[in-house]
Design a protein around this nucleic acid. Structure first.
Length: 259
DNA sequence: GTACCGTTTCCTGGTT
DNA sequence: TAACCAGGAAACGGTA
């Protein structure tokens, strides 16, 4: 079956900056839940859609977006996926064997492997032929692999958050704190256990948040106003020091032992 | 159409 | 003086 589908592949047609427009359904349909949509909202001119980049050149972020896509589109049971195994670049992902995919995600791993091979082989046309491909993949998926829950890691606590890409400001901040490779020294923990952190580069943080929200007029003044609203809801607690904040009782997903 | 939420924008006044 | 903090008020965009 897999072979049959791969046999139908004829060419690779990744376009360097193709503006991806899913012929199958709208993005809203594709990523109808709030959890998924922001991942694509986050893209900037310098950070092309994963769909317009060949898998071998995917960044770690692209790999995660691809995972999100697969879980949602093919209704894969994300609870069986060990996300730390997929905290890799596209090149590393492409070098993984089918067996390694299986080790990383059980039965879903085989489907992920299959999907990846299709994308590698078909390139951009994979997304133009999604209905057929999707149907084939769904045919392959047995009940063990059907989605039964939201995305949650098992083997890799640091990636066990419900959302791979956060939508709210506090989640954005939290995820930045939990992602050293993206943090670039913008935020740092003051007291990891207490949830106290410091904004090191306020302008950079505002710029990053602005990029996320497609708002080039974002400033730290405005961002900090939004942060102060979290005091009311218990997401953040006041720390009487400049540029220092603390996660409150209603913030989740930042504690090391509860990730 | 409406209500609600989570910001965004602007503001005044205070602190470091 | 600049950068930041605090919080009120209104507006805005997305969503249910």
């Amino acid at each position: 079956m897999f072979g049959m589908m791969l046999d139908s592949v004829t060419h690779s047609t990744f376009l360097p900056n193709a503006s991806f427009c899913d012929p199958l359904m709208s993005w809203t349909d594709l990523f109808s839940s709030e959890e998924y949509y922001p991942a694509f909202e986050h893209q900037t001119a310098g950070d092309p859609y994963w769909t317009s980049v060949h898998p071998e050149y995917w960044t770690k972020r692209h790999v995660w977006e691809w995972l999100q896509f697969c879980c949602e589109q093919y209704r894969l049971d994300a609870s069986g996926i060990s996300f730390c195994h997929f905290n890799v670049s596209g090149l590393q992902l492409c070098s993984m064997t089918q067996e390694e995919f299986r080790e990383a995600a059980g039965v879903c791993g085989e489907y992920l492997y299959f999907i990846l091979q299709n994308i590698r082989a078909q390139g951009y046309s994979f997304f133009n032929d999604t209905e057929e491909t999707k149907a084939a993949i769904r045919d392959c998926a047995d009940s063990n692999c059907l989605k039964t829950s939201g995305i949650k890691g098992q083997d890799c606590p640091s990636h066990s958050r419900a959302s791979l890409q956060s939508s709210h400001l506090w989640e954005f901040v939290r995820d930045l704190l939990l992602s050293p490779e993206e943090n670039c020294g913008i935020l740092e923990w003051e007291d990891r256990e207490q949830g106290i952190f410091r904004v090191v580069k306020s302008e950079a943080l505002a710029k990053m948040w602005g990029q996320r929200k497609k708002n080039d007029r974002m400033t730290y003044e405005k961002l900090s106003r939004a942060l102060r609203y979290y005091y009311k809801t218990g997401i953040l607690e006041r720390v009487d020091r400049r540029l220092v904040y603390k996660f409150g009782k209603n913030a989740h997903g930042w504690q090391e032992d509860k990730l």
